[in-house]
Write a protein that binds this DNA or RNA. Structure first.
Lengths: 238, 238
DNA sequence: AAAATAGTGTCTTTCAGACAGTATACA
DNA sequence: TGTATACTGTCTGAAAGACACTATTTT
Protein backbone atom coordinates (compact mmCIF):
# COMPACT_ATOMS: atom_id res chain seq x y z
CA UNK A 1 0.00 0.00 0.00
CA UNK A 2 0.98 3.61 -0.45
CA UNK A 3 3.73 2.95 -2.96
CA UNK A 4 4.18 5.79 -5.41
CA UNK A 5 2.85 4.25 -8.56
CA UNK A 6 3.36 5.53 -12.09
CA UNK A 7 -0.21 6.75 -11.91
CA UNK A 8 0.67 9.03 -9.01
CA UNK A 9 3.48 10.64 -10.92
CA UNK A 10 1.25 11.02 -13.93
CA UNK A 11 -1.55 12.62 -11.98
CA UNK A 12 0.76 14.98 -10.15
CA UNK A 13 1.80 16.40 -13.50
CA UNK A 14 -1.61 16.10 -15.03
CA UNK A 15 -2.68 19.24 -16.83
CA UNK A 16 -6.45 19.10 -17.09
CA UNK A 17 -6.47 22.11 -19.40
CA UNK A 18 -4.92 19.88 -22.03
CA UNK A 19 -7.90 17.53 -22.02
CA UNK A 20 -11.52 17.84 -22.89
CA UNK A 21 -13.67 18.56 -19.89
CA UNK A 22 -17.29 17.79 -19.20
CA UNK A 23 -19.69 20.71 -19.11
CA UNK A 24 -21.09 21.39 -15.65
CA UNK A 25 -24.77 22.24 -15.23
CA UNK A 26 -27.29 22.60 -12.44
CA UNK A 27 -30.82 21.21 -12.61
CA UNK A 28 -33.52 22.29 -10.18
CA UNK A 29 -36.16 20.00 -8.72
CA UNK A 30 -38.82 22.53 -7.74
CA UNK A 31 -41.19 20.81 -5.35
CA UNK A 32 -44.31 21.94 -3.58
CA UNK A 33 -47.59 20.62 -2.27
CA UNK A 34 -50.28 21.23 -4.87
CA UNK A 35 -53.85 20.03 -4.34
CA UNK A 36 -52.64 17.85 -1.49
CA UNK A 37 -50.03 16.05 -3.61
CA UNK A 38 -46.27 16.36 -3.86
CA UNK A 39 -45.69 18.10 -7.18
CA UNK A 40 -42.75 19.24 -9.29
CA UNK A 41 -42.57 22.20 -11.66
CA UNK A 42 -41.61 20.95 -15.13
CA UNK A 43 -40.74 22.78 -18.33
CA UNK A 44 -41.76 21.54 -21.76
CA UNK A 45 -38.83 21.26 -24.18
CA UNK A 46 -39.52 23.08 -27.43
CA UNK A 47 -36.27 22.14 -29.17
CA UNK A 48 -34.78 18.78 -30.08
CA UNK A 49 -33.53 16.57 -28.67
CA UNK A 50 -36.53 15.33 -26.75
CA UNK A 51 -38.78 18.18 -27.89
CA UNK A 52 -42.19 17.78 -26.29
CA UNK A 53 -40.80 16.00 -23.27
CA UNK A 54 -40.78 17.66 -19.88
CA UNK A 55 -37.60 18.66 -18.14
CA UNK A 56 -36.29 20.20 -14.96
CA UNK A 57 -35.26 23.84 -15.31
CA UNK A 58 -31.48 24.04 -15.51
CA UNK A 59 -28.50 25.92 -16.79
CA UNK A 60 -24.75 25.73 -17.23
CA UNK A 61 -22.44 26.81 -14.43
CA UNK A 62 -20.32 29.83 -15.27
CA UNK A 63 -16.56 29.68 -14.82
CA UNK A 64 -16.74 32.36 -12.15
CA UNK A 65 -19.94 31.19 -10.52
CA UNK A 66 -20.27 28.76 -7.62
CA UNK A 67 -22.69 25.85 -7.87
CA UNK A 68 -25.00 27.45 -5.30
CA UNK A 69 -24.92 30.75 -7.18
CA UNK A 70 -25.82 28.99 -10.42
CA UNK A 71 -28.77 27.29 -8.71
CA UNK A 72 -30.00 30.65 -7.37
CA UNK A 73 -29.65 32.20 -10.83
CA UNK A 74 -31.67 29.42 -12.48
CA UNK A 75 -34.31 29.71 -9.76
CA UNK A 76 -34.65 33.41 -10.51
CA UNK A 77 -34.26 33.51 -14.29
CA UNK A 78 -35.81 30.23 -15.42
CA UNK A 79 -38.45 29.67 -12.74
CA UNK A 80 -39.16 33.30 -11.92
CA UNK A 81 -38.86 32.71 -8.18
CA UNK A 82 -37.12 35.12 -5.85
CA UNK A 83 -36.53 32.75 -3.00
CA UNK A 84 -36.89 29.15 -1.91
CA UNK A 85 -35.29 26.61 0.36
CA UNK A 86 -32.42 25.30 -1.80
CA UNK A 87 -30.22 22.33 -1.04
CA UNK A 88 -27.91 20.27 -3.17
CA UNK A 89 -29.36 16.85 -3.98
CA UNK A 90 -27.00 14.69 -6.04
CA UNK A 91 -24.70 14.90 -9.03
CA UNK A 92 -25.55 12.97 -12.17
CA UNK A 93 -22.61 12.12 -14.39
CA UNK A 94 -23.36 9.20 -16.67
CA UNK A 95 -21.50 9.58 -19.97
CA UNK A 96 -24.54 9.50 -22.23
CA UNK A 97 -27.13 11.24 -20.07
CA UNK A 98 -27.31 14.07 -22.61
CA UNK A 99 -26.96 13.00 -26.27
CA UNK A 100 -25.41 16.30 -27.37
CA UNK A 101 -22.36 16.42 -25.16
CA UNK A 102 -20.88 15.26 -21.91
CA UNK A 103 -22.73 17.11 -19.14
CA UNK A 104 -22.24 16.59 -15.43
CA UNK A 105 -25.32 17.97 -13.73
CA UNK A 106 -25.54 18.95 -10.09
CA UNK A 107 -29.20 18.60 -9.08
CA UNK A 108 -30.67 20.91 -6.45
CA UNK A 109 -33.82 20.50 -4.43
CA UNK A 110 -35.93 23.68 -4.19
CA UNK A 111 -38.93 23.65 -1.87
CA UNK A 112 -41.79 26.04 -2.60
CA UNK A 113 -44.88 27.21 -0.77
CA UNK A 114 -48.26 26.42 -2.29
CA UNK A 115 -48.75 29.96 -3.66
CA UNK A 116 -45.43 29.66 -5.52
CA UNK A 117 -46.44 26.37 -7.16
CA UNK A 118 -50.02 27.23 -8.08
CA UNK A 119 -49.52 30.18 -10.50
CA UNK A 120 -47.83 27.90 -13.00
CA UNK A 121 -51.09 26.71 -14.48
CA UNK A 122 -51.79 23.63 -16.57
CA UNK A 123 -51.35 24.26 -20.28
CA UNK A 124 -48.46 26.65 -19.89
CA UNK A 125 -44.87 25.82 -20.83
CA UNK A 126 -44.11 25.40 -17.13
CA UNK A 127 -46.56 23.36 -15.11
CA UNK A 128 -46.83 21.57 -11.78
CA UNK A 129 -47.15 17.78 -11.99
CA UNK A 130 -47.88 15.40 -9.13
CA UNK A 131 -45.09 12.86 -8.75
CA UNK A 132 -46.07 9.45 -7.52
CA UNK A 133 -45.55 5.75 -7.97
CA UNK A 134 -42.62 3.46 -8.53
CA UNK A 135 -41.34 3.84 -11.17
CA UNK A 136 -42.15 7.51 -10.80
CA UNK A 137 -44.86 9.08 -12.94
CA UNK A 138 -45.49 12.83 -13.29
CA UNK A 139 -49.18 13.64 -13.67
CA UNK A 140 -50.51 17.09 -14.58
CA UNK A 141 -53.66 18.48 -12.96
CA UNK A 142 -55.69 17.54 -16.09
CA UNK A 143 -54.74 13.90 -15.57
CA UNK A 144 -52.15 13.78 -18.35
CA UNK A 145 -48.97 11.78 -17.61
CA UNK A 146 -46.03 13.88 -18.77
CA UNK A 147 -43.09 12.13 -20.51
CA UNK A 148 -39.84 13.15 -18.85
CA UNK A 149 -36.66 14.18 -20.66
CA UNK A 150 -33.17 12.69 -20.29
CA UNK A 151 -32.55 11.13 -16.86
CA UNK A 152 -34.93 13.51 -15.12
CA UNK A 153 -37.19 10.73 -13.84
CA UNK A 154 -34.19 9.39 -11.92
CA UNK A 155 -33.47 12.86 -10.55
CA UNK A 156 -37.08 13.31 -9.44
CA UNK A 157 -37.07 9.88 -7.81
CA UNK A 158 -33.98 10.73 -5.83
CA UNK A 159 -35.51 14.06 -4.80
CA UNK A 160 -38.63 12.35 -3.51
CA UNK A 161 -36.57 9.75 -1.63
CA UNK A 162 -34.41 12.45 -0.05
CA UNK A 163 -37.50 14.31 1.09
CA UNK A 164 -39.05 11.18 2.59
CA UNK A 165 -35.84 10.36 4.39
CA UNK A 166 -35.41 13.81 5.89
CA UNK A 167 -38.91 14.93 6.77
CA UNK A 168 -39.02 13.12 10.12
CA UNK A 169 -35.85 14.57 11.56
CA UNK A 170 -35.37 17.94 9.85
CA UNK A 171 -37.33 21.13 9.36
CA UNK A 172 -37.82 20.78 5.60
CA UNK A 173 -41.59 20.38 5.96
CA UNK A 174 -41.82 24.03 7.00
CA UNK A 175 -40.25 25.11 3.71
CA UNK A 176 -43.54 24.12 2.04
CA UNK A 177 -45.59 26.36 4.34
CA UNK A 178 -46.02 30.09 4.95
CA UNK A 179 -44.62 31.50 8.22
CA UNK A 180 -47.91 30.85 10.06
CA UNK A 181 -49.78 27.61 9.41
CA UNK A 182 -52.23 25.20 10.97
CA UNK A 183 -51.24 21.83 12.33
CA UNK A 184 -53.56 20.25 9.77
CA UNK A 185 -51.65 21.95 6.96
CA UNK A 186 -48.39 20.65 8.43
CA UNK A 187 -49.88 17.17 8.64
CA UNK A 188 -51.01 17.38 5.01
CA UNK A 189 -47.44 18.22 4.00
CA UNK A 190 -46.16 15.14 5.80
CA UNK A 191 -48.86 12.99 4.28
CA UNK A 192 -48.22 14.25 0.76
CA UNK A 193 -44.48 13.66 1.04
CA UNK A 194 -44.74 10.25 2.67
CA UNK A 195 -47.74 9.13 0.65
CA UNK A 196 -49.47 7.79 3.77
CA UNK A 197 -52.15 8.88 6.23
CA UNK A 198 -51.03 9.83 9.74
CA UNK A 199 -52.68 9.63 13.13
CA UNK A 200 -53.82 13.08 14.23
CA UNK A 201 -53.31 13.05 18.02
CA UNK A 202 -49.91 11.39 17.70
CA UNK A 203 -48.89 13.85 14.99
CA UNK A 204 -49.92 16.84 17.12
CA UNK A 205 -48.05 15.56 20.16
CA UNK A 206 -44.95 14.79 18.17
CA UNK A 207 -44.87 18.20 16.47
CA UNK A 208 -45.62 20.19 19.62
CA UNK A 209 -42.99 18.33 21.65
CA UNK A 210 -40.34 18.37 18.97
CA UNK A 211 -37.33 20.69 19.02
CA UNK A 212 -35.47 20.87 15.72
CA UNK A 213 -32.41 23.08 15.45
CA UNK A 214 -33.28 24.82 18.71
CA UNK A 215 -36.66 25.83 17.32
CA UNK A 216 -40.13 24.56 18.14
CA UNK A 217 -43.74 25.18 17.25
CA UNK A 218 -45.43 28.00 19.14
CA UNK A 219 -49.08 29.04 18.99
CA UNK A 220 -49.67 32.51 17.60
CA UNK A 221 -53.12 32.99 19.11
CA UNK A 222 -54.41 33.75 15.59
CA UNK A 223 -56.71 31.46 13.65
CA UNK A 224 -57.08 30.55 9.99
CA UNK A 225 -59.32 32.93 8.09
CA UNK A 226 -61.24 31.14 5.37
CA UNK A 227 -62.50 28.00 7.12
CA UNK A 228 -66.12 27.09 6.55
CA UNK A 229 -66.21 25.58 10.05
CA UNK A 230 -64.30 25.92 13.26
CA UNK A 231 -60.99 27.60 12.30
CA UNK A 232 -57.75 26.04 13.51
CA UNK A 233 -55.07 27.91 15.40
CA UNK A 234 -52.06 29.20 13.49
CA UNK A 235 -48.60 28.14 14.63
CA UNK A 236 -45.14 29.31 13.71
CA UNK A 237 -41.60 27.99 14.19
CA UNK A 238 -39.61 29.95 16.77
CA UNK B 1 -30.34 12.54 -33.42
CA UNK B 2 -30.53 16.21 -34.27
CA UNK B 3 -27.54 18.31 -35.29
CA UNK B 4 -25.65 19.81 -32.43
CA UNK B 5 -26.35 23.49 -32.60
CA UNK B 6 -26.26 26.19 -29.98
CA UNK B 7 -30.05 26.17 -29.98
CA UNK B 8 -29.99 22.65 -28.61
CA UNK B 9 -28.49 23.77 -25.34
CA UNK B 10 -30.47 23.72 -22.13
CA UNK B 11 -30.56 27.48 -22.20
CA UNK B 12 -31.52 28.60 -25.67
CA UNK B 13 -29.21 31.59 -25.62
CA UNK B 14 -26.19 29.86 -24.11
CA UNK B 15 -23.52 27.86 -25.91
CA UNK B 16 -21.36 26.16 -23.29
CA UNK B 17 -18.72 25.12 -25.80
CA UNK B 18 -17.92 28.80 -26.31
CA UNK B 19 -17.12 29.36 -22.63
CA UNK B 20 -14.48 28.15 -20.23
CA UNK B 21 -15.61 25.19 -18.20
CA UNK B 22 -14.67 24.10 -14.71
CA UNK B 23 -12.56 20.98 -14.36
CA UNK B 24 -14.41 18.08 -12.78
CA UNK B 25 -12.68 15.91 -10.19
CA UNK B 26 -13.58 13.22 -7.69
CA UNK B 27 -12.24 13.13 -4.12
CA UNK B 28 -12.52 10.02 -1.97
CA UNK B 29 -13.24 10.03 1.75
CA UNK B 30 -11.84 6.65 2.75
CA UNK B 31 -13.23 5.81 6.17
CA UNK B 32 -12.76 2.90 8.48
CA UNK B 33 -12.71 2.03 12.16
CA UNK B 34 -9.14 2.05 13.39
CA UNK B 35 -8.27 1.41 17.04
CA UNK B 36 -11.92 1.93 17.90
CA UNK B 37 -12.12 5.37 16.29
CA UNK B 38 -13.61 6.59 13.04
CA UNK B 39 -10.61 7.30 10.84
CA UNK B 40 -9.90 8.61 7.35
CA UNK B 41 -7.03 7.74 5.04
CA UNK B 42 -5.16 10.92 4.13
CA UNK B 43 -2.34 11.59 1.67
CA UNK B 44 0.45 14.06 2.36
CA UNK B 45 0.89 16.60 -0.44
CA UNK B 46 4.47 16.77 -1.66
CA UNK B 47 3.91 19.55 -4.20
CA UNK B 48 2.75 23.12 -3.78
CA UNK B 49 0.23 24.47 -3.27
CA UNK B 50 -0.29 23.32 0.30
CA UNK B 51 2.73 21.00 0.31
CA UNK B 52 2.93 19.22 3.67
CA UNK B 53 -0.79 19.43 4.23
CA UNK B 54 -2.93 16.29 4.12
CA UNK B 55 -5.50 15.70 1.42
CA UNK B 56 -8.12 13.25 0.27
CA UNK B 57 -7.02 11.06 -2.64
CA UNK B 58 -8.59 12.33 -5.83
CA UNK B 59 -8.32 12.69 -9.56
CA UNK B 60 -9.83 14.37 -12.58
CA UNK B 61 -12.80 12.84 -14.36
CA UNK B 62 -12.09 11.76 -17.92
CA UNK B 63 -14.30 12.98 -20.75
CA UNK B 64 -15.40 9.40 -21.44
CA UNK B 65 -15.60 8.26 -17.85
CA UNK B 66 -18.62 8.40 -15.57
CA UNK B 67 -18.29 9.88 -12.08
CA UNK B 68 -18.68 6.46 -10.48
CA UNK B 69 -16.02 5.00 -12.81
CA UNK B 70 -13.63 7.79 -11.88
CA UNK B 71 -14.18 7.10 -8.19
CA UNK B 72 -13.47 3.40 -8.69
CA UNK B 73 -10.32 4.24 -10.64
CA UNK B 74 -9.02 6.54 -7.89
CA UNK B 75 -9.82 3.90 -5.29
CA UNK B 76 -7.74 1.39 -7.20
CA UNK B 77 -4.86 3.53 -8.49
CA UNK B 78 -4.38 6.09 -5.75
CA UNK B 79 -5.44 4.14 -2.67
CA UNK B 80 -4.46 0.68 -3.87
CA UNK B 81 -7.79 -0.82 -2.87
CA UNK B 82 -9.61 -3.32 -5.02
CA UNK B 83 -13.05 -2.88 -3.56
CA UNK B 84 -15.06 -0.88 -1.04
CA UNK B 85 -18.55 0.35 -0.38
CA UNK B 86 -18.67 3.52 -2.52
CA UNK B 87 -21.40 6.14 -2.49
CA UNK B 88 -21.54 9.68 -3.73
CA UNK B 89 -21.42 12.21 -0.90
CA UNK B 90 -21.69 15.81 -2.08
CA UNK B 91 -20.29 18.09 -4.76
CA UNK B 92 -18.05 20.98 -3.76
CA UNK B 93 -18.00 23.88 -6.18
CA UNK B 94 -16.83 27.07 -4.52
CA UNK B 95 -14.93 29.24 -7.00
CA UNK B 96 -11.68 29.46 -5.05
CA UNK B 97 -11.56 26.05 -3.41
CA UNK B 98 -8.43 25.23 -5.42
CA UNK B 99 -6.04 28.16 -6.00
CA UNK B 100 -4.72 26.78 -9.29
CA UNK B 101 -7.91 26.58 -11.29
CA UNK B 102 -11.65 26.21 -11.07
CA UNK B 103 -12.35 22.65 -9.94
CA UNK B 104 -15.75 21.20 -9.17
CA UNK B 105 -15.15 18.14 -7.05
CA UNK B 106 -17.61 15.31 -6.55
CA UNK B 107 -16.80 13.74 -3.19
CA UNK B 108 -17.37 10.03 -2.65
CA UNK B 109 -17.62 8.12 0.61
CA UNK B 110 -15.67 4.85 0.64
CA UNK B 111 -16.08 2.53 3.62
CA UNK B 112 -13.27 0.13 4.45
CA UNK B 113 -12.81 -2.83 6.74
CA UNK B 114 -10.26 -2.60 9.53
CA UNK B 115 -7.67 -4.68 7.68
CA UNK B 116 -7.85 -2.28 4.73
CA UNK B 117 -7.25 0.77 6.95
CA UNK B 118 -4.52 -0.63 9.17
CA UNK B 119 -1.75 -1.36 6.62
CA UNK B 120 -1.34 2.32 5.89
CA UNK B 121 0.97 2.92 8.82
CA UNK B 122 1.84 6.14 10.56
CA UNK B 123 4.83 7.86 8.97
CA UNK B 124 3.99 6.83 5.44
CA UNK B 125 2.75 9.17 2.74
CA UNK B 126 -0.75 7.77 3.24
CA UNK B 127 -1.95 7.35 6.81
CA UNK B 128 -5.12 6.78 8.79
CA UNK B 129 -6.16 9.67 11.06
CA UNK B 130 -8.96 9.63 13.60
CA UNK B 131 -11.52 12.33 12.83
CA UNK B 132 -13.28 13.90 15.76
CA UNK B 133 -14.54 17.14 17.25
CA UNK B 134 -16.29 20.21 15.97
CA UNK B 135 -14.62 21.81 14.12
CA UNK B 136 -13.22 18.54 12.88
CA UNK B 137 -9.63 17.57 13.71
CA UNK B 138 -7.70 14.71 12.08
CA UNK B 139 -5.34 13.00 14.54
CA UNK B 140 -2.74 10.44 13.52
CA UNK B 141 -2.04 7.38 15.69
CA UNK B 142 1.09 9.08 17.11
CA UNK B 143 -1.09 11.91 18.44
CA UNK B 144 -0.13 14.43 15.76
CA UNK B 145 -2.95 16.65 14.45
CA UNK B 146 -2.66 16.73 10.67
CA UNK B 147 -3.29 20.03 8.83
CA UNK B 148 -5.82 19.49 6.05
CA UNK B 149 -5.51 20.81 2.51
CA UNK B 150 -8.01 22.96 0.59
CA UNK B 151 -11.62 22.48 1.75
CA UNK B 152 -11.02 18.90 2.78
CA UNK B 153 -11.97 19.51 6.42
CA UNK B 154 -15.43 20.52 5.20
CA UNK B 155 -15.63 17.39 3.04
CA UNK B 156 -14.63 15.17 5.96
CA UNK B 157 -17.17 16.88 8.21
CA UNK B 158 -19.93 16.23 5.74
CA UNK B 159 -18.83 12.59 5.39
CA UNK B 160 -19.00 12.09 9.14
CA UNK B 161 -22.42 13.74 9.34
CA UNK B 162 -23.74 11.60 6.51
CA UNK B 163 -22.51 8.48 8.25
CA UNK B 164 -24.11 9.47 11.55
CA UNK B 165 -27.39 10.23 9.85
CA UNK B 166 -27.53 6.92 7.98
CA UNK B 167 -26.14 4.38 10.41
CA UNK B 168 -29.42 3.87 12.27
CA UNK B 169 -31.57 3.06 9.27
CA UNK B 170 -29.24 1.63 6.65
CA UNK B 171 -26.74 -1.20 6.37
CA UNK B 172 -23.62 0.97 6.06
CA UNK B 173 -22.24 -0.24 9.41
CA UNK B 174 -21.64 -3.64 7.86
CA UNK B 175 -19.37 -2.10 5.21
CA UNK B 176 -16.82 -1.57 8.00
CA UNK B 177 -16.87 -5.24 8.98
CA UNK B 178 -15.79 -8.54 7.44
CA UNK B 179 -18.55 -10.94 6.33
CA UNK B 180 -18.68 -12.62 9.75
CA UNK B 181 -18.42 -10.45 12.86
CA UNK B 182 -19.36 -10.37 16.53
CA UNK B 183 -22.15 -8.22 17.89
CA UNK B 184 -19.58 -6.41 20.00
CA UNK B 185 -17.64 -5.47 16.86
CA UNK B 186 -20.86 -4.17 15.32
CA UNK B 187 -21.58 -2.17 18.45
CA UNK B 188 -18.05 -0.72 18.40
CA UNK B 189 -18.66 0.45 14.82
CA UNK B 190 -21.84 2.23 15.90
CA UNK B 191 -20.12 3.77 18.90
CA UNK B 192 -17.15 4.98 16.86
CA UNK B 193 -19.38 6.57 14.23
CA UNK B 194 -21.79 8.17 16.68
CA UNK B 195 -19.15 9.09 19.25
CA UNK B 196 -21.31 7.77 22.09
CA UNK B 197 -21.58 4.64 24.23
CA UNK B 198 -24.57 2.38 23.64
CA UNK B 199 -26.55 0.06 25.88
CA UNK B 200 -25.61 -3.57 25.21
CA UNK B 201 -28.90 -5.48 25.68
CA UNK B 202 -30.87 -2.85 23.79
CA UNK B 203 -28.32 -2.86 20.98
CA UNK B 204 -28.42 -6.65 20.67
CA UNK B 205 -32.21 -6.73 20.61
CA UNK B 206 -32.40 -3.97 18.04
CA UNK B 207 -29.85 -5.57 15.73
CA UNK B 208 -31.25 -9.09 15.99
CA UNK B 209 -34.82 -7.90 15.36
CA UNK B 210 -33.94 -5.51 12.58
CA UNK B 211 -34.60 -6.22 8.92
CA UNK B 212 -32.81 -3.89 6.54
CA UNK B 213 -33.25 -4.34 2.80
CA UNK B 214 -34.79 -7.76 3.32
CA UNK B 215 -31.70 -8.93 5.16
CA UNK B 216 -31.14 -9.64 8.84
CA UNK B 217 -28.45 -10.89 11.19
CA UNK B 218 -28.11 -14.65 11.46
CA UNK B 219 -25.86 -16.62 13.78
CA UNK B 220 -23.19 -18.66 12.01
CA UNK B 221 -22.55 -21.08 14.87
CA UNK B 222 -18.85 -20.14 14.65
CA UNK B 223 -17.02 -18.13 17.28
CA UNK B 224 -14.27 -15.53 17.20
CA UNK B 225 -10.80 -17.05 17.22
CA UNK B 226 -8.35 -14.87 19.09
CA UNK B 227 -10.26 -13.92 22.23
CA UNK B 228 -8.36 -14.15 25.48
CA UNK B 229 -11.63 -14.99 27.24
CA UNK B 230 -15.00 -16.35 26.32
CA UNK B 231 -15.27 -15.97 22.53
CA UNK B 232 -18.37 -14.34 21.07
CA UNK B 233 -20.50 -15.87 18.36
CA UNK B 234 -19.98 -14.71 14.78
CA UNK B 235 -22.97 -13.35 12.85
CA UNK B 236 -23.48 -12.51 9.22
CA UNK B 237 -26.03 -10.55 7.20
CA UNK B 238 -28.32 -12.76 5.14
C1' DA C 1 -10.64 -21.19 40.97
C1' DA C 2 -10.27 -16.52 39.08
C1' DA C 3 -11.05 -13.37 35.54
C1' DA C 4 -13.20 -11.54 31.86
C1' DT C 5 -16.45 -11.14 28.56
C1' DA C 6 -20.80 -13.29 26.31
C1' DG C 7 -25.38 -13.33 26.59
C1' DT C 8 -30.30 -12.93 28.94
C1' DG C 9 -34.45 -11.65 32.00
C1' DT C 10 -37.03 -8.08 33.60
C1' DC C 11 -38.47 -3.58 35.30
C1' DT C 12 -39.43 0.98 34.00
C1' DT C 13 -40.01 4.79 30.97
C1' DT C 14 -41.17 6.73 26.75
C1' DC C 15 -43.80 7.27 22.83
C1' DA C 16 -46.82 6.14 18.92
C1' DG C 17 -51.44 4.34 17.34
C1' DA C 18 -56.26 4.04 18.23
C1' DC C 19 -60.47 5.73 19.61
C1' DA C 20 -63.68 8.22 21.84
C1' DG C 21 -64.87 12.17 23.73
C1' DT C 22 -65.38 17.52 24.38
C1' DA C 23 -65.01 22.31 22.31
C1' DT C 24 -66.02 25.81 19.06
C1' DA C 25 -67.06 27.90 14.89
C1' DC C 26 -70.38 28.58 10.84
C1' DA C 27 -74.85 27.76 8.43
C1' DT D 1 -79.68 23.46 16.48
C1' DG D 2 -77.05 20.71 13.27
C1' DT D 3 -72.72 19.82 11.36
C1' DA D 4 -68.08 19.83 10.55
C1' DT D 5 -63.74 20.27 12.22
C1' DA D 6 -60.44 21.54 16.18
C1' DC D 7 -58.53 19.74 19.98
C1' DT D 8 -57.75 16.47 24.13
C1' DG D 9 -57.83 12.35 27.50
C1' DT D 10 -56.71 7.86 27.99
C1' DC D 11 -55.80 3.05 26.95
C1' DT D 12 -52.65 -0.15 24.84
C1' DG D 13 -48.69 -2.02 22.85
C1' DA D 14 -43.90 -1.61 21.09
C1' DA D 15 -39.36 -0.59 22.02
C1' DA D 16 -35.31 1.46 24.48
C1' DG D 17 -32.48 2.30 28.83
C1' DA D 18 -30.87 0.42 33.07
C1' DC D 19 -29.34 -3.16 35.87
C1' DA D 20 -28.60 -7.41 37.57
C1' DC D 21 -28.03 -11.94 36.70
C1' DT D 22 -26.36 -16.40 34.49
C1' DA D 23 -23.17 -18.77 31.09
C1' DT D 24 -18.92 -19.99 29.06
C1' DT D 25 -14.32 -19.80 27.84
C1' DT D 26 -9.23 -18.89 28.87
C1' DT D 27 -5.50 -18.36 32.17
Amino acid sequence: MANITPEDAFLNDYDPAAFDRPSVAVDLVLLGIHAGRLSALLVERDQPPQAGRWALPGGFVGIEESLDAAAIRVLRDKAGLADAHLEQLYTFGAIDRDPRMRVVSVAYLALLTEDAVAPASTGARITPAAIDGDPLVATRADGEDLPLAFDHAAILTRARDRLRGKIDYSDIAFAFLPPAFTLRALQEVHEAVLGTRLNKPAFRRRMLDRVVGGRRLVATGMREADASHRPAELFRLA
